[in-house]
């Protein structure tokens, strides 16, 4: 029974990774940049939750809404100020700028909230459900996390396949030049991508801090890296890939922590990533690009 409860815990954690990875993978697919500040948007989302609920004493729903709105605006602002001027620069330059933004967000949080750990009140007021005579415990957060993840995945896929903006995104990701000729507004498309990615990061922060409430200025860094790994795992640029990658990663991490070693769980995650990439160099669902001379 404990195996099944670990599995459920893993899927729940994996769903959070998957939502973060969706943001990573969309930004990568469309802007062709690794947004290392993505993880820190999660941390910002956590602090907004904390401020609205604990400091201002408002309702959880308001806190969630405030967090999503703030993160979305933050994503658009970051893109406008830091990344847009570098659209034609080398990808390494953009990467370093993203790292700069990441430091900036972490240190802003440090100045405003200090170094001590804050605890976010859980937004999801569902008690733990016990099945099979109390042997199988399913935390209430899990019951919310997994459906939210599925809803996001489906609606995002529909949005990208069916809506005009979504198709514009596909066009920009395949060929920027051709997309411009077809009348797609690249700047607007990229801004929308960042907005969606950051909103997803806010949703992920709500889910993550409901299960793991401790919050420090660096608590977004590791989930950010894990989500990046998840995105690569599933094939970066692919939406179902990010989903599969995230969930697999969550399961591996929780099972590794439970059965092998809690200190080596991260090492196991990374080891499996390496093995997967050696067998499938473009990730699980990634498309292999043929190079032409």
């Amino acid at each position: 029974m404990s195996f099944i409860s670990y599995l459920i815990k893993g899927i729940s954690l994996g769903s959070v990774y998957a939502i973060i990875a969706l943001g990573y993978t969309m930004v990568y697919g469309i802007a062709k940049m690794l947004n290392f500040a993505h993880g820190d948007v999660i941390m910002v989302g956590g602090y907004i939750l904390f401020t609205v609920m604990t400091s201002l004493g408002q309702s959880p729903i308001l806190a969630v809404l405030a967090s999503i709105v703030f993160c979305t605006l933050l994503g658009i602002t970051i893109e406008r100020i830091a990344y847009k001027p570098l659209r034609k620069a080398s990808s390494l330059a953009v990467l370093i700028t993203a790292i700069g933004v990441s430091y900036l967000l972490q240190n802003l949080a440090l100045i405003i909230y200090g170094t001590e750990t804050k605890f976010v009140t859980s937004v999801i007021p569902i008690p733990t459900i016990k099945l099979a005579g109390g042997n199988l415990a399913i935390p209430g957060q899990t019951l919310v996390t997994i459906p939210v993840c599925i809803v996001i995945m489906v609606s995002l896929t529909v949005f990208i396949r069916k809506s005009k903006t979504g198709r514009g995104m596909i066009a920009v990701s395949e060929d920027k030049g051709a997309a411009v000729l077809m009348g797609v507004n690249i700047n607007k498309t990229i801004a929308i991508t960042f907005a969606i990615g950051s909103a997803l990061a806010a949703v992920a922060s709500v889910l993550m801090f409901s299960s793991y409430p401790s919050l420090t200025p660096t608590s977004g860094a590791m989930p950010g890296i894990k989500a990046f790994v998840a995105a690569v795992f599933g094939g970066i640029g692919s939406i179902p890939g990010a989903m599969i990658g995230g969930i697999l990663l969550g399961i591996i991490e929780i099972l590794g922590r439970a059965y092998i070693s809690s200190q080596l769980a991260d090492a196991i995650v990374f080891l499996i990533l390496i093995l997967v990439l050696l067998i499938k160099p473009a990730g699980i669902l990634g498309r292999k690009m043929n190079e032409k001379v």
Binding site: A93, T97, I99, G100, V101
Partner: peptide, 12 residues
Amino acid sequence: AVVLIIIMIINW
């Protein structure tokens, strides 16, 4: 962090 971002933008 701010210096880092500004240098990158000025440079590129």
